[in-house]
Design a protein around this nucleic acid. Structure first.
Lengths: 221, 221
DNA sequence: TCGCGTCTCACCCGTTTTGGTGAAGCAAAG
DNA sequence: CTTTGCTTCACCAAAACGGGTGAGACGCGA
């Protein structure tokens, strides 16, 4: 069974080139070509392709918005961004909109074909620079707010981030509730905050299942 | 100039295997091998390797915590996670801790070598499944089945996320403290949580003090 | 050996949060 | 008009949290 691919790309030259590349792979078939978002939203849902190759910069609307709508209409379709824009914001928004892959336009034909197959097979192909920028969004900007937390304190801050009660933290670490309280008080003093939520804000994105907020020890290591 | 690599891995067999793999590449040199986090934190800063290959499951402490501390001591070092654990939470936490690559232990030797070179060259090598899970963290939730929050409730949830007291929220919205309490209670009931922190964990990521959570109203409008 | 820092625990206090119940005003929908 | 849902507010009570102080045990480094 061939992989049905749709292309959304306003640049005519690039569009033809893409079709050519796809045609060179026996297991890929281009079933639809749209040069703007409106056409794409009308035509693509009727065709239900397996993979959609999407440009970000489109004449009538953003490829991001188009991606979001198409993904809602066709949750099973895998969307592969194909663009010249490699700024972090675009990458993140594209993924949030439902894209699963992100290729830059300098990608070699063979890699494009591989990416289409990969994304169809529930992979997440992306260009090298894109991967690095994506990873960088997780890196915290190295906040240097005051004193460092000790190992124990970092540990407890992590558990605070999970929404546990002091009592539950005590049970988890096999220490008394009062000890937990002592550590928490020290944490708050060091971070210059006065509540659990503020302590967590001082940190990570998401706080979702709060990542630990590990700081350095103040001995040599 | 060779790329100096340190290994933090408790499994002796795997450790040797890794050293062997590294030795097979002329441009890589293994300069340090540690089998626990404490040794790593003592030894590695003195050596300043270019790349650190880090296991997540270590005997004395989490490789996540170790990664975080090493990254602070050696911001220039590129840390490559090498582990059997591929759950989303571990991946995200490792990256937040400062890792730049994430390989699973079924990775072929040639790919390991390529990954070390890549990460040293400021890339972000990761296994296929890891990339997909990472991308999936951006895909909007598929949120909880719970009842939708009203506009007011979303608004208050946002302020809760800023760490404000009920009193402060009341002042901000010009409503009584008791009214804030009522909304909060309804929020907790709808989200099936029993504390501020737990409620925030169910919020969209990245919403630090951002705009009110864009949830839907339940009427048509 | 001494000092320092960490981790542990205890007790004091007041504030904040959470849970439950009830109810009034209001606007939109049926 | 009646029902439904949102917003507003009140009262009672318990649990959890935040701040301060003090202190013993341990390990590590000077």
């Amino acid at each position: 069974m061939q992989i049905k691919v749709a292309i959304v790309e306003d640049n005519a030259g690039l569009c033809e080139e893409l079709q050519h590349v796809l045609a060179s792979a026996a297991d890929l078939v281009c079933v639809c070509v749209c040069c703007n978002a409106e056409d794409a939203l009308h035509a693509i849902p009727k065709i239900s392709p397996d993979v959609i190759i999407m440009d970000i910069r489109l004449p009538d609307a953003s490829g991001i918005e188009c991606t979001s709508r198409l993904k809602r209409l066709l949750p099973e379709a895998q969307i592969l961004m194909f663009t010249i824009q490699d700024d972090t914001e675009k990458i993140v928004k594209a993924l949030e909109a439902g894209a699963s892959g992100y290729l830059l336009k300098d990608t070699a034909p063979a890699e494009i074909i591989a990416a289409v197959r990969d994304v169809h097979n529930h992979g997440a192909p992306m260009s090298r620079d894109v991967a690095r920028k994506l990873v960088a969004t997780f890196h915290h900007p190295a906040r240097d707010t005051g004193e460092p937390l000790t190992l124990r304190e970092s540990e407890i801050l992590g558990l605070l981030g999970e929404g546990l009660l002091y009592k539950e933290i005590g049970d988890r670490l096999t220490i008394k509730l009062d000890t937990v309280r002592t550590h928490v008080k020290n944490i708050y003093r060091k971070l210059h905050v006065r509540s659990r939520t503020q302590a967590l804000m001082n940190k990570p994105r998401g706080a979702q299942g709060g990542p630990p907020a590990p700081l350095r020890q103040n001995r040599e290591w």
